[in-house]
């Protein structure tokens, strides 16, 4: 076969061209150094001030939860009837409740419980959601249809009903709260992962890997999941606040963490009878919940924008 002539239309005479001086030959030198994907993401994330504020706040809150109680002179359940219902002062920064327990210490312990619940529930949801969603999306067809109908049934049940039932059966403690929160909240992640896998599996690089004899597991872990990482991270980032809030909500209703354990929800619950006379007892736990919610949601928004550059304004 004859080769195609590539320069048939060359009409500009070569003597019009001057060679480039040698110091300018580093053509690549002034181009921005090629940043890896995650470097780009970090750069876009740090440019978002509210997201950065959220990250800093959550970092401080985590330090506060882990190390704060170590430096506190009061135990979280230590009662002192003589100094009950004190307003905030130099000894008890957030005041005390009706049993004389230091609210500052109890808010720190509450942070431990809330963040633990948030992180563990999100991790378990992530694991179940990714496995379920990727199997459903990758195998498709009948498998997908059956798995998605199961999800539809689960989501159709009113969640509060079976969470209450479950708490009655398992008893009110940290582990049963996490289990109760994990029953259905993985569904959102599973749907996100399924959608991603469904669209990515038709890319031709997946065919190329199949052609080389790659196993399903290889394709899933090497091609499909890394390319769905953005939406997975974002949905996890929003799972953490929703788990924390659900725990606070359950504890507020009195079916979550039991007294004398302190979660932000129980603290708020205990403060209800005092709401009119001593509103500060409600203020501090609720402020902790709200600020944590705001920060986590800001982080989620920031991650969503920085992981998907097309969403940028």
């Amino acid at each position: 076969m004859q080769r195609l002539e590539q320069n048939a239309y060359r009409t500009v005479p070569p003597n019009l061209f001057d060679p480039l001086p040698s110091e300018e030959k580093q053509a690549d030198g002034w181009i921005r150094p090629s940043a890896s994907y995650w470097q780009d993401v970090w750069m876009r994330f740090t440019r978002n001030k509210t997201a950065l504020f959220g990250l800093v706040f959550i970092g401080l809150m985590a330090l506060f939860a882990i190390f704060g109680p170590l430096f506190s002179p009061y135990p979280y359940d230590g009662m002192d009837m003589l100094s009950g219902n004190q307003p905030p002062n130099s000894v008890h920064w957030f005041g005390t409740d009706k049993f004389g327990r230091d609210i500052f210490t109890r808010v720190m312990y509450g942070a431990r419980i809330s963040l633990t619940v948030g992180v563990f529930a999100a991790m378990i949801n992530l694991l179940i959601g990714v496995v379920y969603g990727s199997v459903s999306g990758y195998f498709g067809g009948r498998v997908d249809m059956v798995m998605m109908r199961i999800v539809d049934i689960l989501i159709g049940l009113p969640s509060l009903l079976y969470i209450v039932l479950l708490m009655l059966v398992l008893g009110s403690n940290l582990v049963s709260v996490i289990i109760a929160l994990c029953i259905t909240s993985w569904i959102g992640t599973a749907r996100v992962v399924r959608g991603q896998v469904l669209s990515i599996k038709h890319n031709e690089y997946v065919l190329a890997a199949m052609l080389a004899g790659a196993t399903n597991r290889y394709i899933l872990f090497r091609h499909l999941l890394p390319n769905s990482m953005g939406p997975i991270i974002v949905s996890t980032a929003f799972l953490i606040p929703s788990a924390i809030f659900s725990e606070a909500f359950l504890s507020f209703l009195g079916i979550g963490i039991n007294v004398p354990m302190a979660s932000w929800g129980t603290l708020a619950n205990e403060a209800i009878p005092m709401l009119q006379s001593r509103p500060y007892q409600m203020l501090f736990p609720v402020a902790a919940i709200s600020l944590t919610m705001f920060s986590l949601n800001f982080i989620g928004d920031g991650l969503r924008d920085s992981l998907d550059p097309r969403l940028k304004k």
Partner: peptide, 28 residues
């Protein structure tokens, strides 16, 4: 082997060129 039509969807955007080229050999 196969060469594909759409060079955008036929190369995994998260892999470096060297890894893409070596992939069939690694799988084997």
């Amino acid at each position: 082997q196969m060469i594909f039509q759409d060079s955008f969807s036929s190369l995994n955007p998260r892999m470096m060129v060297g890894d893409i080229i070596a992939e069939p050999l690694r799988i084997q």
